[in-house]
Design a protein around this nucleic acid. Structure first.
Length: 487
RNA sequence: GCGGCUGUAGCUCAACGGUAGAGCACUCCCCUGUCACGGGAGAGGCCGUGGGAUCAACACCCAUCAGCCGCGCCA
């Protein structure tokens, strides 16, 4: 039995008989001769059935696009006039001696050779496994993996430890709405899926891991955008004994090297990345994630910048529809956090913080030790030095109007950890899908995710969410109350 | 929660107040150097769903569903 040869390696076998396995990419039937393009994960090659192979011809004439085949043939260099200079494997072809059909395929629902971004996304998402065979999604998914591998190696090289944190965790009154998971063993109680591993990574610092990272799945039950999915991936990092400068340096260095090593055709507009205070960004660009590109039509231009010096607190104002910012995380006072209740204020504001209370004025003048990384107008990451002193964290919650019981119930473990020898620490989380979207010149993050959801949070391929059986509901003590018929 | 755009053949689209058409794909035939192969024939439609005005609706009106984009929201 011959060993399978990858299509990209065929040229090395010129003149020999080999076996390939893959898909029929295209068939061009000329009667006496049939041409195919075969495709595997490594590339494409033309195969030809010559009149001298009647058995192969008999099989070959039945084959159609996307059938899966095993082909034995001889690797020939093409005659001069048949060479396709600009095509991969354009100078060789496989003279087909025999073929076996491994699986047939229905006519594909759309042409995977077209730019499928032009195709109705409902169809693409329903048949994602077909769409994924196209060149672009193949490239995006594989390049994503290369970037992840690069990140792992980089961080491992500077003493980071990758740790998996739980997906079944606790609902906390933080910013976004939680996805909740009912408990069977404790009917009436619920887990929540993490919006980020924020507390766990800080507790890893309390646990002496010192340098942690994770390609972390995060879930937020909020409405989507082109750059937001209910489920997404963060490169999550946390470092003990680090200040703003060190965390920003590591981030910047890693980003620069990813571009240099994996996207060498792209150029970074300015290094080191410019740092823009939040107040200046709002004054000059009217936005906290300015697009600094000198030429916005240049697809290879990457304009990174840092936005720094964010106010820690902002006014806790109700919207027209009665919802307030930070969801259930908003306390009862006039103030709420802008980004993260666990951030520290910049050292020079510490005294003022400790002297403040829920009724204090000018809380918005306190600046946080916090930084966002922005690329071409997208926020691709953010982090802060954390508040590792229990009394400061208590003060922050007091200013937001949390009562002691709420703080103890939701954050008692954090406070206790901070009283148990937690080193000063800080970190950052990258919106990894957004970074990949920009690096791959895609218009939305669905194009760099293998199995994205629709804007309404549906998985059209799996048909999720969906109802569950009565038994399942009974186990969980859940009764579904049908919504009132709308009039 | 709100606003905008879209929904017609498998896919991409067109048309028209009087029961639908193209390109590609598909099926069959022809073709010995194609590579977006070519030539010929054919099949394929509850015009997203429900209601309404009209002699008559795919078209106009209302509702609803779905997809996309954005606002709110997104520590």
């Amino acid at each position: 039995m011959k060993k399978r040869v990858f299509i990209k390696d065929l040229k090395a076998s010129a003149g020999q008989e080999v076996m390939i396995k893959g898909w029929i990419d295209v068939r061009r039937d000329q009667g006496k001769m049939i041409f195919f393009d075969f495709r595997d994960m490594t590339g494409k090659v033309q195969g030809v059935i010559l009149p001298s192979a009647p058995e192969a011809h008999k099989v070959g004439s039945t084959l159609r696009s996307e059938w899966v085949v095993e082909v034995v043939g001889k690797v020939n260099t093409r005659p001069e006039r048949a060479i396709q200079k600009d095509k991969f494997n354009g100078d060789i072809e496989l003279e087909i001696l025999s073929m076996i059909v491994l699986n047939e395929a229905e006519t594909p629902p759309f042409d995977i050779h077209s730019d499928t971004r032009e195709i109705n996304e409902e169809v693409r998402l329903k048949y994602r496994y077909v769409d994924m065979r196209g060149e672009r999604l193949q490239k995006n998914i594989r390049n994503r993996a290369k970037v992840v591998t690069y990140i792992r190696n980089f961080l491992a090289g500077i003493n980071f430890t990758e740790v998996e944190t739980p997906l079944l965790t606790k609902s906390t009154p933080e910013g976004a709405r939680d996805f909740i998971v009912p408990s069977r063993l404790e009917v009436g109680s619920f887990y929540a899926l993490p919006q980020s591993p924020q507390q766990y990574k800080q507790l890893l610092m309390a646990g002496g891991i010192e340098r942690y990272f994770q390609m972390a799945k995060c879930m937020r039950d909020e409405d989507t955008r082109g750059d937001r999915q209910p489920e997404f991936t963060q490169l999550d990092m946390e470092l003990s004994f680090a200040d703003e400068e060190e965390i920003m340096q590591i981030t910047e260095q890693l980003l620069i090297q990813i571009v240099a090593e994996l996207y060498p055709h792209k150029k970074i507009q300015e290094v080191p990345f410019p740092r823009i205070p939040y107040a200046k960004a709002m004054a000059e660009y009217k936005i906290d994630r300015p697009d600094l590109r000198a030429d916005k039509n240049d697809l290879n231009l990457l304009a990174f910048c840092w936005v720094i010096d964010f106010p820690f607190f902002e006014k806790n104002e109700k919207n027209a529809n009665g919802t307030s910012k930070n969801g259930t995380g908003a306390g009862t006072s006039n103030w709420t956090f802008t980004h993260n209740p666990f951030s520290a204020v910049k050292p020079e504001f510490n005294e003022k913080l400790m002297a403040s209370s829920a009724g204090s004025e000018d809380m918005n003048t306190l600046l946080a030790a916090q930084y966002d990384i922005v690329l071409n107008g997208y926020e691709i990451g953010g982090g802060s030095v954390r508040n590792h002193k229990p009394e400061s964290l208590l003060k922050v919650f007091e200013i937001m109007g949390y009562d002691k019981e709420t703080v103890e119930n939701n954050f008692g473990h954090m406070l206790h950890a901070f009283k148990s020898g937690t080193p000063p620490h800080g970190g950052i989380a990258w919106g990894f899908d957004r970074l990949m979207m920009i690096l791959e010149n895609e218009p939305n993050i669905r194009e760099v995710m293998a199995f994205p959801k629709t804007g309404e949070g549906r998985d059209l391929m799996m048909n999720a969410p969906s109802s569950v059986s009565g038994d399942q509901l009974r186990d969980l003590g859940i009764m579904i109350k049908k919504p009132e018929a709308s009039k």
